[in-house]
Design a binder for these strands. Structure first.
Lengths: 314, 314
DNA sequence: GAGTCTCCATAAAAATTGATTATCCAAAAA
DNA sequence: TTTTTGGATAATCAATTTTTATGGAGACTC
């Protein structure tokens, strides 16, 4: 590993002298004394074993070696300036990348709106959204591939301790029926009515599915008695199936806002049963938090947080 | 003029850490202690107001800002390395340019051989030859446009003192006749025979012409009695004129070697008259001497110098 | 899970580097 | 000539950097 034969300061001085044609003027320009520039140039010449300036006449003129060095000097200093600007932009959120993680539901129905808001405020920060399972998202946050994420499922125990988990919002999983289903006229269903329905569900690996199963089970239902018409792996597909009258399903309300408004899907109420899950914000406290990430968490998320979230208070 | 927010040393350290994935290993690589590395990175982070490394785990990982900076860092350091190499090449004569000045005669007949020899030894140094009048060449040397030059005439007095003038070689100006000229049979001519000749000469502005006139005059000849058939401004043109039988001329022997060997031109000897002029090497002592110029003067010129030149002794 | 190791941070002391003031010298300008 | 200007040099002084020594936190080992 070779020693560096010059410093940026020396290059800066070299450039100044070349521009001003004089050691003294360069010194004035750089707000140092003339001996300082003299010594630095002498050091530079000694270290590179070249003569850079002809000091003979009234003006300090570059030698051939001097001209050669000046060329590189300008390039190097330009790169330095550019680097500074890039860093500044990053600091002032005029650049950089924010990587956000989310589970299927949040990623599909919530994040686009949030990211839109963020980009409106900081159009020069590029945002990347990664939709993965809770588990995978958790690991990505842990090893820094994702800056922050919102998940709806339960993290593996080891990650639970490693990451910072903040309750963020409550996501209601509504029971939805085809709008022309006989039961869609009843004001309120009973739990037992569920056994009469044909369900279209997410596949059993899905976090959302597990959450729903667990909540139903906790409320005293025997989930093996529920009839499952089919298992699909996309919420959109399930929505279409329900609208086509193929069956009922538990779907996040955020995912069916449009359909409810249009009346193509019916949301049913069940006595003594609310299927709700907590959405959680996860970050990695042991990692550097980018400015963009910070701002997203402080300014964007709270606007979508539920009232009981700690994020509301900020 | 903005302060530089980082030093090359810091960039070097940054690069080393990024490459090694560890502060300690970087320290070892750079032959410094680990705290030195730590502090420099801390300074860098403080000055740029960014976090560069996540120091959490086993390895030091770059943050987004770190990666951004590293990119510029590599570019900058590469430019530095390149600059060093270019300078080294210049020092070791593996690059650079040598600008040589010469008058018409030397430039045409002597320099090409010298430059050939030089380029054979240092093929990577590009050589530029500028053929101009003695006067103009002198000024070019004075203001540094030419590294060194060989002239055959007299410099203006002021330049004479400013420049270093070293006798370099003696250039004989031979009286040449058409080979079928009646006088070309005589073993030796008398001075008076010159009055019988028709001369083809360089134009009267030319340094060589002035030198010849002066030497003839000094030897007692009345130059206004010499018959001048025509004045041309090119030695080659004169050579052709002489070969065509149009007249006689005084020409530098170096310029007619080939013609003498071929017998197309006759060189006459004149009793008690030798027309010789001194070729002189001129350099500018108050200016930086490039390595190439140095080497040319020390190693190439002597091989072509006459025995009485100081350059021979080197 | 206690012990050990590794790696980074920190504090104080030592060394190196760089800047300044005060002259000096040489060359250009008057 | 004399004066002026620009650069070199020397000694002092200040700042930065490096080192030594030490502490603490996380990661492997048994």
């Amino acid at each position: 590993m070779p020693e560096l034969p010059f410093t940026l300061d020396q290059l800066r001085i070299l450039k100044a002298i070349a521009a001003q044609g004089s050691f003294k003027k360069a010194a004035d320009l750089l707000y140092v004394t003339q001996p300082a520039v003299s010594l630095q140039i002498q050091n530079l010449e000694k270290q590179l074993e070249i003569t850079i300036f002809d000091r003979g006449g009234r003006k300090a003129l570059l030698t051939e070696a001097g001209r050669l060095l000046l060329e590189y000097c300008e390039r190097i200093l330009n790169q330095c300036d550019e680097a500074c600007k890039a860093i500044e932009d990053l600091n002032s959120l005029k650049g950089g990348t924010l990587v956000i993680g989310a589970s299927q539901t949040t990623g599909t129905y919530l994040m686009p709106r949030m990211i839109g808001l963020f980009r409106q405020k900081y159009p020069e920060v590029s945002v990347q959204l990664q939709v993965h399972s809770t588990r995978r998202t958790g690991w990505s946050v842990a090893n820094g591939q994702i800056d922050l994420a919102i998940i709806g499922g339960q993290l593996p125990g080891d990650l639970e301790n490693l990451l910072q988990v903040i309750p963020y919002a409550t996501d209601e999983l509504a029971l939805v029926l085809p709008s022309k289903h006989p039961l869609s006229n009843k004001k309120e269903l009973l739990k037992e009515d569920l056994y009469k329905l044909n369900f279209v569900t997410l596949d059993s690996q899905s976090t959302t599915r597990k959450v729903v199963d667990k909540l139903l089970q906790d409320s005293g239902l025997e989930i093996q008695r529920l009839k499952i018409e089919m298992e699909l792996n996309s919420l959109e597909a399930i929505k279409n199936a329900v609208q086509s009258g193929l069956g009922a399903s538990f779907l996040p309300v955020v995912s069916i806002e449009r359909e409810l408004a249009a009346g193509t899907i019916h949301k049913a109420f069940i006595a003594d049963l609310e299927v709700k899950r907590a959405l959680k914000l996860i970050t990695n406290p042991s990692r550097y938090t980018s400015r963009a990430s910070e701002v997203f968490k402080k300014n964007i998320l709270p606007q979508f947080a539920s009232l009981d979230s700690p994020l509301r208070k900020i």
